[in-house]
Amino acid sequence: MPGNMLIVQGGGPTAVFNASLASAIRERAKQAPGGRIYGARFGMQGLSRADLIDLSSLSSDALLQVRNSPGAALGSSRFAPSEADLDASLRHLSSRGVDQIVFLGGNGTMSGAKKFAEFCESRSFSVQVMGSPKTIDNDIAATDRCPGFGSAARFIAQSTLDLAADLRSLHQPVSIFETLGRDVGWLSAAAALAKENEDDPPHVVCVPEVPFELDRFLDAISNTVAKIGWALAVVSEGISYANGKPVFQQVLPSGGKTAMRPLIGGVAQHLSGLVAEHLGLRCRSEKPGLIGRSAAAYVSSQDLADAELTAQECVRALARGETGKMASLLPLGTGASPSCELIPLAAAAGPRRALPQEWLGTGAIASNEKFRGYAAPLVGQLRRPRYL
Results as ranks from 00 to 15, higher is better:
G273D: 02
A307V: 03
D306I: 00
L318E: 04
T334A: 13
D306K: 00
A276M: 11
S294F: 10
G266M: 08
A317V: 09
V267F: 05
C283M: 12
L332H: 03
R282Q: 09
I291R: 12
A296L: 11
T334C: 04
A296D: 08
H278D: 06
L263K: 14
L290G: 05
S272E: 05
S328L: 04
A319Y: 15
R284N: 06
D306Q: 14
V267C: 01
H278A: 09
P288C: 06
S328I: 07
V315H: 09
T323Y: 08
G266E: 04
S272F: 00
L329H: 06
P331N: 01
I264K: 05
A307K: 03
L281F: 13
E313K: 12
G292Q: 13
D303T: 00
D306E: 15
K325S: 11
E322Q: 09
A307L: 09
Q312E: 14
A296K: 13
L274Y: 00
L271R: 07
D303P: 03
G265N: 07
S300R: 02
A276S: 15
C314F: 10
R320W: 06
L281Y: 11
L329P: 05
L263M: 13
E286H: 11
L304R: 10
A317G: 12
Y298T: 14
G321N: 14
L281K: 10
L271P: 06
L290A: 15
L290Q: 15
S300E: 01
L330T: 02
K287Y: 04
I291Y: 14
S285H: 14
S328Q: 07
V315C: 13
R261D: 12
E313G: 06
P262F: 03
I291G: 02
S294R: 13
G273A: 06
L329S: 03
E313C: 12
L304Q: 04
P288G: 07
A317E: 08
L290P: 12
P331C: 00
S300L: 08
G321D: 11
A276R: 15
G280S: 08
G321V: 06
R316C: 04
T323V: 06
S300D: 07
R282L: 10
T323Q: 10
E322F: 10
T323N: 06
P331E: 07
I291H: 07
Q269A: 15
D303A: 09
C283F: 04
R316M: 12
A268N: 05
A296R: 13
I264N: 00
E322I: 03
E313W: 00
A317W: 08
L290R: 12
R284D: 12
Q312D: 07
Y298R: 09
P331T: 01
L263V: 13
G324E: 09
Y298Q: 12
G289R: 09
S301I: 04
P288F: 02
L330P: 05
V299S: 05
L281C: 11
S294T: 14
H270V: 02
D303I: 01
E277W: 02
S272T: 06
E322P: 08
L304A: 11
A317P: 10
T323H: 10
E286K: 13
R293F: 00
L279P: 07
E286A: 14
V267T: 08
K325R: 15
V315Y: 04
E277C: 02
A296T: 07
T310N: 10
G280R: 08
L329M: 11
R293N: 00
I291F: 13
V275S: 02
V315G: 06
A327D: 07
V315M: 05
H278I: 04
L304C: 01
P262V: 08
H270C: 01
T310M: 14
